[in-house]
C-alpha cells in the first residue's frame, strides 16, 4: 500500500468554459472523461494518466494538465 503522497499529471476541465463538444471524451484512451448532462466534460482523476491528448484536441483549448498530489 502506498502511504506517501506522490505527484501525478492529471487533466482538469474548467466547467464554465466547456462547450460540451465531446472531443476530449472521444479522444481519451483511458475512458477517463464523462460528458455531464450535455453541459460539460468531467475528468475521473483516478483513471486519468495525464497523457495530454484531450488537452491537445480540445477546440476551446481549455483543458489544463497539472501535477496533483495523489
Amino acid at each position: 500500500m502506498q502511504t506517501r503522497k506522490s505527484l501525478r499529471r492529471k487533466a482538469t476541465v474548467p466547467q464554465a468554459q466547456c462547450v460540451a463538444c465531446g472531443c476530449c471524451f472521444n479522444t481519451c484512451p483511458k475512458g477517463a472523461i464523462e460528458m455531464i448532462k450535455g453541459v460539460y466534460a468531467s475528468v475521473e482523476e483516478a483513471l486519468c494518466v495525464g497523457c495530454g491528448l484531450c488537452s491537445g484536441i480540445c477546440p476551446a483549448s481549455i483543458i489544463k494538465i497539472a501535477e496533483v498530489a495523489v
Binding site: 462547450v19 460540451a20 463538444c21 472531443c23 484536441i57 480540445c58 477546440p59 476551446a60 483549448s61
Partner: peptide
C-alpha cells in the same frame, strides 16, 4: 486553429 474550432461557436452546439 484546432480542427473542430467550429464546434466552439457552432449555433447548433451552443
Amino acid at each position: 486553429y484546432k480542427p473542430r474550432s467550429w464546434c466552439v461557436y457552432c449555433p447548433m452546439g451552443t
